[in-house]
Structures are given as C-alpha cells and as structure tokens.
Design a protein around this nucleic acid. Structure first.
Lengths: 195, 195
DNA sequence: TGTCTATATATACATACGCACATATAAGCT
DNA sequence: AGCTTATATGTGCGTATGTATATATAGACA
C-alpha cells in the first residue's frame, strides 16, 4: 500500500490540500501511481485519524475553504520507515497478455488490431515524454525540488521510457510472428484450393 | 476486470474445478495475472449466478467432492466479446518508483540496497524462465494446448523476459548514477576536510 | 441562457481482492 | 504421536479503490 506514503512524500515538500495533491500527482507521480480525488480525500482523512497529519482550514472568498494538511512528527517517522523498507515487487496485471494467452480463440485481425492499439498508446507516450519531460521536470523543480530531487525524478521517468520502448519492441516482434503465420495459413489454403 | 474472463479462457479448454483452475493459473497465467483460491471460488460462484457457467458435482471416496464448472453458451459469447474488445492499458503501480521519487530523503545506501534487491528478483526470474520456460510450456501443451496455442504462450512469456531484462538494465543504470554522485559528494567532503 | 471548466469539499454504493479461518480426509514424514 | 502437504470446498472480515453524485461559486464559451 503506497498511496498514504506517496501523499506523505508530497507533503514533505510543503503543506497542501487534497486538491493540490491531486494536481501534484498528475504532473509527476501519475507515471507510476494513480489516485482519484475521492480516494485522496478518504486517505488524507484516515491519515489524520492515524495521527500522521494535522490540518488547518483557510477560508477564501468566492471559493471553497481550503483544508490544508501538514505532516506531524509521527507522519515524518512513518515516511522515513516506509522509504527505508524494501519495496514490494509489483505483481504484473495485464489484460492484454491474458487475451494474448487465449489468442488462438481470437480472430487474428482483432488480435493484431489490439496489439497495434497498444503500440500506438506507447509510441504516443514516448512522444509526450520527449516533448514534455523536460518542461514537466522543470515545473516540478521550480515548485518543490532541488537538483538532487530532479535527478530522482529523471530516473523514474527513465523507467517509464524504457518500459514504453520495451513494449513497442515487443509489439513489433509479436505482430511479425502473427503476420508470418497468417501468411503461411493463406498459402496452405491456396494450395488446397488449387488441389 | 479480467479474472472472470481468464477463468472463462481456461474453462474453454475443458471443464474444471476451482482447485484445478488455481493450479492452471500457477503454471501459466500467473506470469501476468494472479488470483488466490478464495477469489477464484468467489468469482466462479458469481459467474454461475450470471449464467456464464453451469456445474455438476462429482462425489469421490476419501476426497472432497468436486464441483466441476463448464461454460454455458452465454459464457462462450462473453469470452468472445471480451477477447475482441480492446484491452485496457494497465496503469503502472510501482512502490519502488514512488520511493525513488522521494529518494532524496533517503539514505543513499538504503536506496541502492533496495534497487539491488529489485535487480536480484528479476535476475532470479530470468534464470527461472531460462530453466523452466520450455518444460512449463511443454506441460501446458500436453495438458490443453496445440502448437498454435503454444505460440501465444511463448509470446506472453517473451513479454515477461523482455520486461525483466529492461528492469535489470534500468537498475544497473540507476545504480551507476547513484554511485557516481555518492563518490562526488565524498570527494567534496574530503576536499572540505583538507581545506 | 445554458453548458463546461476550475476551485474545493465530501458521501454513498459497489467491486475486487488479500488474509485468516473453518471443515474433512488421506498420505507421508519426523 | 504429531506435523505438514495435498485434495477440495468455502465464509468472514477488512482494505483499497472506482464511479456516481451532492454542494457552492465564478469565469469562459457557444
């Protein structure tokens, strides 16, 4: 379970509201973790009950009040403990690979189309990373981070890029195999038709 | 949500009990999806209520009775529809990358140790794949699959191998960066000590 | 004028799933 | 004699999370 700790990590830069934290997620951690707004609110509320956070309410005119959370000493300790603990190895969950596993029951065209769609998604991701990674990193740096922090952000982003490249390569290799076999089958059919 | 469809896929080979399906998972789909025994039983029960499956009970001596599920026509249609539908792109969830993101707040030694642990896990995985992939695939082939099915199983396994190699490479690159910077810092400290 | 987006909070309902435990028998190990 | 493993079924409890919805205001757009 990482969401509370990811929130602690972001709050270690500066106090923030649930709404702020959602925005912070979107411009950074979203690459390797994801959280909806209701989930963030629920988690913050629970963390406050657990004594990891405290909050103050700041009233605004024309806009809703802001509930600004900040870490307590207990929260800081919790973050440190979590950071030092060995990370769980993520168990892969990929519905595409499950589908592929039963690919024999699929129309080859549908299967190839699905793989191509996946490929598109990751090439698109790579484009966005190329275009946005530096601006995004700079935005992050301006907001909260120093150069050391930027380095870690780049490492995490590098993981995302390597992963996307790996998937694209795999898609190409798999599409080649599927195409080759489809062609072989056609040839056999043609022969039979000639016979 | 893929578990019910993964179970449908396995049941498309032949009728089976929850216990059988757990074993089938472990020798194949476990690479890219995972399910506990209670979760499988619960899901089968729900699928039966939804009319995707029917079952017969086979009594055995000395052993518990077997509740053997098989697909209904509705279940077959459901599987076909699911297979043809475009797969959801998996949203990455990696607590190691979250930790790395806050790596600046960590002891560099702890961080490096965590990355090394990750690296070990994936090198171990690669070893097991090297040793077991063919025997495992053959076992799968003997059980349920023909050559075409084996090909798709190999494609999925290939994904796992490529992923593991990518992670190992990333670990090496990241460890190099962390080491380099640690050394630089030491040098600066040494200089300061000399000054 | 009505809809959409942004700001900001949150509840309600449902689903997926992990872990612990309950039940029963037989075989094999220490 | 007691423990673990394999076979086979489940329930109960808790947690994480997704989706829909409620509330309130202001500005932009069609």
């Amino acid at each position: 379970m990482s969401l509370p700790h990811a929130l602690l990590g972001l709050l270690s830069y500066k106090p923030a509201t649930g709404y702020d934290l959602k925005a912070a997620f979107e411009s950074s951690i979203n690459l390797f973790w994801n959280a909806s707004l209701p989930q963030i609110y629920r988690t913050l509320s629970q963390m406050e009950k657990d004594g990891w956070l405290s909050f103050i309410i700041k009233h605004q005119e024309g806009k809703p009040s802001r509930k600004i959370y900040q870490m307590t000493d207990k929260g800081k300790k919790e973050l440190q403990n979590w950071l030092a603990a060995p990370p769980e190895v993520p168990q892969a969950k990929s519905s595409l690979l499950v589908k592929l596993f039963f690919g024999n029951q699929m129309n080859r065209k549908d299967l190839a189309a699905n793989i191509r769609k996946w490929r598109e998604h990751y090439t698109e991701f790579l484009k966005i990373m190329d275009k946005n990674i530096l601006p995004s990193a700079k935005g992050f740096a301006r907001e909260v981070a120093n150069k050391d922090e930027l380095q870690f952000w780049m490492m995490a982003a590098d993981y995302g890029v390597r992963n996307a490249r790996m998937v694209v390569d795999w898609c190409d290799a798999s599409l080649a195999v599927i195409e080759k076999n489809t062609r072989v089958k056609r040839t056999k059919q043609s022969r039979r038709a000639i016979d």
